[in-house]
Amino acid sequence: MAQPYQPGKVRLPVQFAASAALVWQLLAASPAAADVALPAEGSAVAAPAGGETPRDLSKYKEESVPGGDLMILAYLVMWGLLGGFAVRMALRQGKLEREIASLQDRLDRGA
């Protein structure tokens, strides 16, 4: 069954993709990014080139934890979750509305 183009369905995901891109740009341009780019003092921790993941907590010094990385990760996860929920619901809503329309159509034709 051919579905007519319904503008309301497409807008929501696009809206969110656009705002996600904007957020990403903001994060990259913010002073936080400068903090990330700076080589941290404990470079063994900041860049685990040897591939070893440090288990010992004493290896982490307060200063050597890349705070900007943590912050960007936290924000990405946070908005990824909320945005993902919104996109999923918008997509589902589109599907549901198509189903409602087709059911209504069948009812109207039967009457």
Partner: peptide, 27 residues
């Protein structure tokens, strides 16, 4: 969404970093 983006910009560009914790405090 606009409110979130606006506040996010404020947090990133205007708010100073915490003196003790640094940039991570913005979480």
């Amino acid at each position: 969404t606009a409110l979130v983006v606006g506040v996010l910009a404020w947090v990133m560009f205007v708010t100073p970093a915490d003196t003790n914790l640094g940039i991570v405090q913005k979480i």
